[in-house]
Amino acid sequence: MVEHAAEPAWVEVEQYLTDVVVGPDPAHQRALESAVQAGMPPIEVAPTAGKLLKLLVQLSGARRILEIGTLAGFSSIWMAQGLPDDGRLVTCEYLRKHADVARANVDAAGVGHKVEIRVGAALDTLPTLAAEESFDFVFIDADKENDANYLDWAIRLGHPGTVIVMDNVIWDGAILEPERDEVNAPGIIRALDMLGQDPRLDSTAIQTVGSKGWDGFALARVR
């Protein structure tokens, strides 16, 4: 398995940018602390990435967001804060105990009225959304084995112009050495191939460093 080690300087710079540029509010800190208290793995996005998601939601004019992978609701809060008051975020979480923590966090952040948490395997939940209004923005941050499946559903549940963000696409460089993580790396590679080859998408990918180690995200637009 890949170890996502972070250089001290990466963490220091990220903290500096968080403090000086991003300025998280108490609701974000509460979500982080609740995740630790609940014994969740520290795999939520960094505050700098959370703010990026919020800005992308606002820049795209999104009113309906789909999130795949909720955890404690940290990224959910950021994105919901970017929605208009009558906007809607549907987030899929596999574990009930995580969903309960996230519910408390989005409510405490004052965005609970915008957020619906659906519990269960996302590949079971996503087909049930097909009869609903399409999504303007999709954030994928769940089990990497199913990244390509999630990406396909993001396209199907979206519309021309829908923005898709997929996290963890570099995976400490394991996309070049998939034998280092035979569980996650192949799924990420399949998704990257799809991002580059699927005629329904126009895509790019950005590598990053920070408290989460060497990683990155993909950004796509449905044609």
Rank of each mutant, 00 (worst) to 15 (best):
K54M: 14
A49L: 15
H98N: 14
K212R: 03
L201F: 08
V90A: 04
E67G: 08
T48P: 13
A154L: 08
W171E: 04
P41V: 09
V209D: 10
E7W: 11
G73E: 13
N184S: 13
I164M: 01
T18F: 00
D202P: 00
K212G: 00
A131V: 13
L32H: 08
G120I: 06
A148I: 02
E182R: 10
I65N: 13
T18Y: 01
D86E: 12
D124R: 11
L83Q: 10
A174Q: 02
D181S: 02
R156Q: 08
I188T: 06
K51H: 05
E7F: 13
L66I: 10
A154N: 08
V21F: 07
Y94Q: 09
A108G: 09
T204M: 08
W171N: 06
A38K: 02
K114N: 08
M166N: 02
V20L: 04
L53G: 07
Y150P: 14
V2P: 09
M40S: 07
L195M: 11
A122T: 09
A9Y: 15
K51F: 10
T128S: 14
V138F: 08
L56F: 04
R30L: 15
G158D: 06
A38S: 09
P178R: 02
E3T: 14
D193L: 11
Q197A: 09
L126V: 08
W214S: 09
I206A: 05
C92L: 10
R190M: 11
R223E: 14
H98G: 01
G210Q: 00
K97I: 02
A49D: 13
L32W: 10
A218V: 04
E116Q: 09
K97A: 04
A27P: 10
V115M: 01
A99H: 03
I140S: 01
R221P: 00
G187P: 08
V13W: 14
T128P: 07
A72K: 07
R180E: 01
R118L: 13
I175N: 00
F137E: 14
